[in-house]
Every structure is written in C-alpha cells, then in structure tokens.
C-alpha cells in the first residue's frame, strides 16, 4: 500500500501525539509503515493541524525546512519541506521556555517574512514574494521532534509538522528595500559563545526563493499563504542542541537580535 486512508492518517497522527503522553520520542511513522509516501505524510500533518485548529488554536503561518544543501543531502532529498505555525508556538523575544513543553529541542536562526498580500501558487517567483512582503524580522526557531532520537526520514519529519516546536520573532522590522536578503549575515551564540555563522544565501540561495517554493508547494494541497501570516524561510546555519539553563541568541546584520532561554 502506498496511499493512506482517513483511518490510517488518524492513527499516525495519534501515534506522534503519544510522544507527549509518554514524555519521550516515539518510533518513526516509517517504522510502522515503510511504504508511506511524502504525500501521505502531508495528509497526516494536515490532519493533526486540523485537530489543533478545532481545539481552538489559530494558524499564524508556515515554516520551511530542509533549505540547505547539507540538510537535503543528509535526508537524501532534492527539495525543502514545510510545516504549520500555530499561535501556541509563538514566544516573545527574550522569553524563557520550559523543558516541560519540549522533548529534544534544537535551535536555528532564520529570516521571517510577514506578508501583506496573499500568495497563491503555482508559478509564484521570488520577485512575487518580495512584492507581497510587508516586512522581515529576525527569528529563532526551536525545532523539536516527536520521533525518538531524531531518527527521521523526510516522510517522518513531514508527518510530524516538519519537526516544529516554537518560534521567536525579533521586533526590528525591516522593509525589503532596506536589506540585501542574500547577503544578510548572521552570528548564532550559545550561552554567549559564538557557535556558528550564516548568511541569507544559505537558504536555497535566497530566502525569498524558499517562500516562493512554499507558495507553489502549498498549491498542491489547496492551501494558500495569507496576508498577515509569518513565514520562517529556513535555517541560515546548523542547528544547536540545547539543555535546561541554556540561552541562544542570534545577531543579524540590519535586523538586530533575537534570543530565547531554556529552563527545567
């Protein structure tokens, strides 16, 4: 079998949610069914999000993952993936986040786009993205996996909402006319020690190209990018593993800083 039915979708969604009941990562969904296709995985993700919306959460945007050549090579894929952002995932700049809400978090630094117009694929270009962008802000994404030890394939992470956890946006809003997206430099600090550096071009050559990819990909699932939504456009450097007591801070050229810390 390579197509999931509604019952299976619910079963896989519940399987991932069970990570919270047992307090640790569960088996990959591909261990339960090795024939699962990435389309099935998006169906599982969309089902999970639908459940969360029905229980009162609001979709605030989308995140794009696997935007670097190294991540794509690691998972053996040729394109990015996406997940949904919900209001319950949003943190304020400088907030502390309890490990009670986390399983095995990692932090990555990204450029976030806030849209002023809907973007409806297919045939969306980077240029269309720029015209539809209200402003950009610096962002940290706290990725987390409901799958044990991050033993994921593309299908596993897609089913698990692209390993989304939480996100933090900086306050320093910049218009597209004030920056050179491809060349924005970024330094990521872990407990005030420089961990790594990155640049806008790390995300598919241009963060706007990632957003264009997303708008076109979403068209396959009849989902649109809406005005007002946040789009996390993809990590600009390697992720950092964190533990309680840690603090992460990213400093961006032109965009300022964004930080988050972790407690027990």
């Amino acid at each position: 079998m390579n197509k999931t039915n509604v019952l299976d979708t619910k079963m896989f969604s519940n399987h991932l949610a069970n990570a919270w009941n047992i307090g640790e990562g569960v088996q990959p969904v591909t261990a339960l069914n090795p024939d699962l296709h990435v389309d099935d995985a998006y169906k599982i993700q969309l089902y999970t999000i639908q459940q969360q919306v029905q229980s009162g959460q609001t979709i605030t945007g989308k995140k794009i993952g696997l935007t670097s050549k190294s991540m794509q090579t690691m998972l053996g894929v040729g394109e990015p993936d996406f997940g949904h952002l919900l209001d319950g995932m949003e943190l304020k700049n400088g907030d502390s986040l309890s490990f009670k809400k986390l399983l095995q978090p990692k932090v990555e630094a990204e450029i976030a786009f806030i849209l002023k117009e809907d973007l409806v694929g297919p045939n969306i270009t980077s240029f269309d993205v720029l015209l539809a962008t209200d402003y950009i802000v610096p962002a940290l994404e706290i990725v987390d996996s409901r799958i044990k030890d991050w033993e994921i394939t593309l299908v596993d992470t897609v089913a698990d909402n692209a390993s989304s956890g939480f996100y933090v946006l900086g306050e320093n809003r910049k218009k597209i006319t004030e920056v050179d997206l491809k060349q924005i430099g970024m330094a990521l600090y872990h407990n005030d020690v420089l961990q790594n550096t990155g640049v806008g071009a790390a995300a598919l050559g241009n963060p706007a190209k990632c957003v264009a990819w997303l708008a076109n990909k979403l068209a396959d699932y009849d989902v649109a990018l809406k005005a007002g939504e946040v789009v996390l456009s993809g990590a600009l450097s390697a992720t950092i593993e964190v533990k309680p007591g840690d603090r992460c801070r990213a400093k961006f050229a032109e965009l300022g800083e964004v930080a988050v810390s972790f407690t027990e």
Partner: peptide, 11 residues
C-alpha cells in the same frame, strides 16, 4: 531575470 534588491526610487 529580476533581481531581488528592491529599492526606493528616492534613494
């Protein structure tokens, strides 16, 4: 081919 450096004309 459109570049992605958009600027204000007054600048």
């Amino acid at each position: 081919v459109f570049g992605t450096n958009l600027r204000n004309p007054e600048d």
